[in-house]
């Protein structure tokens, strides 16, 4: 079997959500396309419906109900009707011939416009043969189109589950470089690793040398691997005039098993208490950054 999850239940659920958000005329178009595809199995029918969807379905924002959300393999934040249709449509491809399946999907990627790319990369966790899209995902991370990067990086469980370490590290570094909300990367803490910590630490030094600010979320990925090398940076961060940076320092020390870092945290019992009470988290820091503080 090609799918790593129950795709039929998901497909039914997606269609239910789509139906709620489109006109009767659009629903008829969807039904007609589905019938044509099932009867003819002609690739041109499949490709055309994928490309032309916004013309017939529109781009109303869609929402899942409280009951639907937890069952869906993707977060529908920011989804529009055409985008949802596109991922549902991908589930209509037969998976009995792996090579052909991959060819069809790769061809969609290769001829995609921006919104199609966003739909395709966002659909990665729903595609069959999860192991087949690692290179494609790494290629997507090289994109410089904001929306495409966000589709791969934010709320998307595919990269953390499937990318090897170098590709994963590229994703995270690129997220910092392109100023994405890093805390929305799925699996961020789980995939933290010493190599990434080293690269980010170097990156922070470059930023500092250039007189540019360092994103406080960076210390989230350095913290668990703090040792002598990063300590000086964290000590400096403790003295920052910005709340977000002092809090990031505290959180990084809290995540560290390195003695001197733990000692640093002891000097600020009030922050330590907040962290242990769950009042101060990386979400707090992320929120501050977004609130211009």
């Amino acid at each position: 079997m090609g799918y790593a999850y129950d795709e039929q239940t998901t497909a039914a659920l997606l269609r239910q959500i789509i139906s709620r958000h489109i006109s009767e005329k659009a629903a008829q178009w969807v039904q007609d396309r589905l019938t044509a595809w099932q009867q003819q199995q002609a690739l041109s029918v499949f490709n055309m419906a994928f490309a032309a969807a916004p013309r017939f379905i529109g781009r109303e924002p869609v929402t899942a109900t409280i009951a639907e959300s937890p069952v869906l393999p993707v977060d529908l934040e920011g989804y529009t009707a055409d985008r949802l249709f596109r991922i549902w449509w991908l589930l209509q491809l037969p998976v009995d011939d792996k090579k052909k399946y991959i060819e069809i999907i790769e061809n969609l990627f290769n001829t995609a416009e921006m919104n199609e790319l966003v739909a395709l990369y966002g659909a990665l966790p729903l595609l069959a043969f999860p192991e087949a899209w690692q290179l494609r995902t790494a290629e997507g991370i090289r994109s410089n189109i904001g929306g495409v990067l966000e589709a791969i990086m934010l709320h998307n469980p595919y990269p953390a589950a499937n990318l090897d370490q170098p590709a994963w590290n590229q994703l995270v570094i690129k997220a910092f470089f392109t100023e994405k909300p890093v805390h929305l990367i799925a699996g961020l803490d789980r995939r933290a690793n010493p190599e990434l910590a080293r690269i980010l630490l170097d990156y922070s030094h470059e930023r500092r040398a250039a007189g540019r600010p360092v994103h406080p979320m960076l210390w989230r990925l350095v913290g668990p691997f703090l040792e002598e090398m990063g300590l000086e940076d964290i000590e400096r961060l403790w003295l920052s005039e910005y709340n977000a940076e002092r809090e990031a320092a505290a959180l990084a020390c809290h995540a560290s098993g390195y003695g001197p870092a733990r000692e640093l945290l002891e000097k600020r019992p009030e922050l330590k208490a907040e962290i242990e009470a769950g009042q101060l988290t990386w979400e707090t820091v992320a929120h501050r950054v977004n609130m211009a503080n």
Binding site: A112, E113, M114, N144, I145, G147
Partner: peptide
Amino acid sequence: FRDYYSSLVGWERF
């Protein structure tokens, strides 16, 4: 040609 067309609806639009 394919890459050019796809850049017109992709990168250049962005």
